[in-house]
Amino acid sequence: MDDQILRLVGILTDSFIPLLKAGLLFTVPLALISFALGLTLAFLTALARISSSKVLQSIARFYVWLIRGTPLLVQLFIIFYGLPAIGVTLSAFPSAVIGFTLNVGAYNSETIRAAIQSIDRGQWEASKALGLTRGKALRYVVLPQALRVAIPPLSNSFVGLVKDTSLAAAITVTEMFQVAQQITARTYEPLLLYTEAAFIYLIFCSVLTHLQGKLEVYSSRHLTS
């Protein structure tokens, strides 16, 4: 019995560093890069949605419709396993980045659009009356206020993304969950390894939630009297 416990503790400690390493080297960068690119895409999509151009509006709506209506795992398979059939061969990590970026872009474009449209018309009018162009009004007046509205849902989306990166295991990215699977295949201790991986995801997400709280307080500083 003691031997069994010692063996499990040994597996746990031996696997902790490889798991954490995979988390820090793949999970976190995959999430950060995809989120940064995805937010840029989301912002451009939101601008297209609120622009006066019918063409831009349609393109943006089509993109959001397509990505939201299909499963992320299927999208990743199409990019990594499917595209080589038409001559587009990407390695695993870039494939994952593209898949996650497209998703972050589609979902958060709606968040950003709603946040921009939640800002009172009077703020646009006052900007125009003071001689600010539409672009400057957006940048200096509307976006800073819209950001406060958008931070909680955007943070939610980021936490969701960190967990979704585990799907990249299915297209051979050696992120944390993939490493957990590899060690499980060697040790036959799925409960132990997957719980351990879940625990590390939990730590990552807790840190993020804490940062979100700070960001929210900072962005709402003009509302505290």
Binding site: D120, G122, E125, A129, L132, P144, Q145, H222
Partner: peptide, 25 residues
């Protein structure tokens, strides 16, 4: 122009409200 509902920029201080337009325009 001065509006019925003031329309001050809610995220800026009083001084920043006054300085924004001359600064960026």
């Amino acid at each position: 122009m001065v509006f019925q509902r003031f329309n001050l920029f809610a995220h800026l201080t009083v001084l920043e409200n006054i300085m924004l337009a001359p600064m960026v325009v």
